[in-house]
Design a binder for these strands. Structure first.
Length: 706
DNA sequence: GAGTTTGAAACT
DNA sequence: CAGTTTCAAACTC
């Protein structure tokens, strides 16, 4: 049975697809909760191993089975709970949950174990609170997919709305559309019972604390995402129990570190991508829940081993979109796009990390660099965010996007979209790839929601070094940016360079800045306002020519009146391009043959050379001094307060002279008066002496110490 | 660092 | 669309 389509596979975290992991993995049942493995008659099509869990705590045991072959491997899986799993097919009190032989299959191709028809568990609902809530998979027709055990040991549960995949098989309308629950049992030694302790009267239901939200972001239905790619994502949101929510017990450990991923399963057998499958989307169960820890259950995300960065590559868009995920108290909601639901996303791996308070994904970098930047910083980030008190959110709600952004491709990177009405705190953030770099360099990620994700007051977290913006093309997505100094615009108008370039303010000097995730709503409104005024407001002003930079030109042209377009007031000059016919400038001197321009360029080049030479000379001098001091310092003569004289070697003198000559050249090139030139040279000489003395003194003290 | 100049953005 | 105002960066002293 081909349960998981290639599209889905692409969506799955690596752990799930790790065949080796499951093969090599030891039985993941926690030692603390030993499980009895007992053969139980089941309605299975193939002999399997049974996995039992001690009542009332659940545990699951997977007996490693060869999965490499294409044939369904035999596996025994017994999930049992004496109180909750005493289904009809399970001897009462035996504590065994039977899985019929036909109830599962192993899809070697997908490295998944498919447990079918665990509906019997629902019959046990009356046997106790635990049974009624979550200890078993109780939805009739549901199927449990036990995926491979991730190397990281992170259980991953996937919900596969089955109706869209296999629901056709049950098209008689009488039998409920089966659903697949994909559960990765990766606990290893971390595997712990999901249920409460035997003494606990109440089985702790993860559903009480969490819920899954299924979001479908489709393009064909008017959503701003790519029409070619639809994505269903699920947020796991903390919540209060909701009557509309269906609880599903997970007889495996879903403790710390779990990942929950819901993927809208497209027509698995359909070879075509992008085929509309709206009915499938509509068939999504609004809520799929997993019983875990307790009402206050929190999941600590072991990010070090997980691909936290989730990116969504939108065809036709130059941006990489990422999801910000936080918990939410919103009611269980299924957000669906109106358009096609076939998931063909190749690059995105929706992964919702669940915490009791905060969950997130990290803004993303270009796809090609994604994996490089994921690990460490994300870990730090998430640790911080786990402690936060507020909730972050998932990607953009399909229902609200059209209202917010008529043209998604015009969204500036960094756009944070407001939560959709009625969806609680679920929202989306579209973050530019550049911002990833900011995050990468920032030890603290402050993706704050309006409800209180804390950012150090008054401190932006931009990590990008303020490099002269002139050095790179302004339309470059990687252009370094100076910190802004906005005071009145709240950094929400195009006056603000950060905002205009779709970046969050970071390490800026702005006052009352709203260009951050703390002010998502305001920022969103501002973006919308700008786009209403000018749909291309966030498009690069300097368009690339057809044949490279030589054809770069300002998209609108400048309007300079007094600067002659030879100062940085002029956007053309600032971008190091010449004015073009579309410019409306007066007295323009920024054209190819302009002598003024040539002079300026010459001076600029000279200045650049000067800086380089100066830097090189200073570096050389310093290194030579250090080298000489380490080799020739006569300690015996360095007693008292006198410095050794031997450091004034030939090399030091030569390096000093180089510095002085460089200085002389620079003053000459810049046309400085002789008096000033002499002064600058003398000053440079003084600097050299200071460095020599300083290095000598340091070397002296070092030698004394040694 | 304060003040001025400049031109894009925003506004009317 | 044009004129005016606002704004922040560039520039000067």
């Amino acid at each position: 049975m081909d349960v998981v389509s290639p599209e889905l596979i692409n969506l799955l975290p690596d752990e799930i697809m790790d065949t080796e992991a499951i093969i090599a993995e030891e039985v993941p049942v926690s030692a603390a909760q030993p499980c009895d493995v007992a053969p139980v008659p089941m309605e299975t099509d193939a002999p399997v191993t049974t996995v039992t869990a001690q009542n009332p705590q659940l545990c699951a045991t997977l007996t490693p089975a060869p999965l490499r072959s294409g044939l369904p491997s035999q596996l025994t899986l017994v999930v049992s709970s004496a109180s909750s799993l005493a289904g009809a097919s399970v001897p009462a009190g035996s504590g065994l949950q039977k899985l019929s032989p036909g109830s599962f299959a192993i899809s070697a191709a997908n490295h998944q174990i498919i447990l079918n028809k665990v509906a019997e568990a629902t019959k046990t609902s009356g046997m106790g609170v635990s049974a009624s809530t979550a200890q078993v998979i109780k939805q009739d027709g549901q199927k449990l997919l036990v995926t491979t055990i991730g190397k990281s040991g992170q259980p991953i549960m996937l919900q596969l709305p089955q109706k869209s995949v296999l629901g056709q098989a049950s098209g008689d309308g009488k039998s409920p559309a089966p659903q697949y629950k994909v559960v990765t049992i990766g606990g290893r030694t971390e595997l712990k019972p999901v249920m409460g302790s035997p003494g606990s009267p109440l089985p702790v239901s993860a559903l009480q604390a969490q819920q899954l939200k299924t979001l479908q972001v489709g393009g064909g239905g008017g959503l701003p995402f790519s029409p070619a790619r639809d994505l269903t994502v699920v947020s796991v949101a903390s919540q209060t129990p909701n009557a509309t929510q269906k609880s599903m017990g997970v007889p495996v450990n879903m403790a710390l570190g779990q990942q929950i991923l819901t993927v809208h399963q497209p027509a698995a057998v359909s070879p075509s991508k992008g085929v509309s499958n709206q009915s499938a989307a509509q068939s999504l169960k609004p809520v799929q829940t997993v019983t875990m820890g307790g009402s206050h259950f929190k999941t600590i995300i072991p990010l070090a081993t997980q691909p936290n960065v989730q990116q969504i590559q939108v065809p036709g868009s130059r941006f990489t979109y990422v999801r910000l995920v936080t918990s939410t108290t919103a009611n269980p909601t299924t957000l669906q796009a109106g358009g096609p639901t076939t998931s063909t996303m190749q690059t995105a791996k929706p992964m919702v990390v669940n915490t009791g308070t905060v969950r997130m994904s990290v803004p993303i970098a270009p796809a090609q660099t994604m994996k490089q930047m994921v690990p460490k910083s994300i870990t730090t980030t998430t640790q911080v965010m786990t402690n936060a008190q507020t909730q972050q959110r998932l990607i953009m709600p399909a229902t609200s996007l059209p209202q917010i952004q008529p043209n998604f491709t015009n969204l500036p990177p960094g756009t944070v979209l407001a939560p959709a009405p009625g969806t609680g705190n679920v929202g989306y953030a579209v973050v530019p790839a550049q911002y990833v770099a900011q995050l990468q360099q920032s030890s603290l990620v402050t993706m704050a929601s309006s409800s209180g994700f804390h950012t150090p007051t008054g401190v932006q977290t931009q990590a990008r070094l303020p490099v002269n913006g002139l050095s790179t093309a302004p339309d470059s997505s990687t252009r370094p940016r100076k910190p802004c100094n906005c005071t009145k615009s709240q950094c929400l108008k195009l006056y603000c360079d950060c905002f205009a370039n779709g970046e969050f303010c970071n390490n800026c000097n702005c006052n009352n800045c709203f260009n951050n995730l703390e002010h998502e709503t305001e920022r969103l409104k501002a973006i919308k306002t700008c786009l209403d005024r000018n749909p291309g407001a966030f498009k690069p002003k300097i368009g690339k020519g057809k044949q490279g930079e030589s054809d770069r030109r300002h998209s609108k042209g400048c309007n300079c009146k007094r600067s002659g377009c030879l100062k940085n007031y002029c956007e053309c000059y600032e971008a190091k391009i010449m004015c073009s016919s579309i410019c409306k400038c007066v007295g323009c001197k920024n054209f190819e043959e302009s002598p003024e321009r040539k002079t300026l360029m010459h001076l600029a080049d000279a200045a650049e050379v000067r800086v380089q030479q100066q830097t090189a000379a200073k570096t050389k001098l310093s290194s030579q001094i250090s080298d000489l001091l380490t080799r020739t310092t006569p300690i015996s003569t360095s007693g008292g307060g006198r410095l050794p004289y031997t450091f004034v070697t030939k090399e030091v003198v030569e390096a000093t002279c180089e510095c002085l000559l460089d200085q002389a050249r620079q003053t000459e090139l810049s046309g400085q008066p002789q008096a000033l030139a002499e002064r600058l040279i003398l000053e440079e000489f003084g600097h050299c002496l200071m460095r020599i003395i300083s290095s000598a003194g340091k070397a002296k003290s070092d030698c004394i110490n040694c």
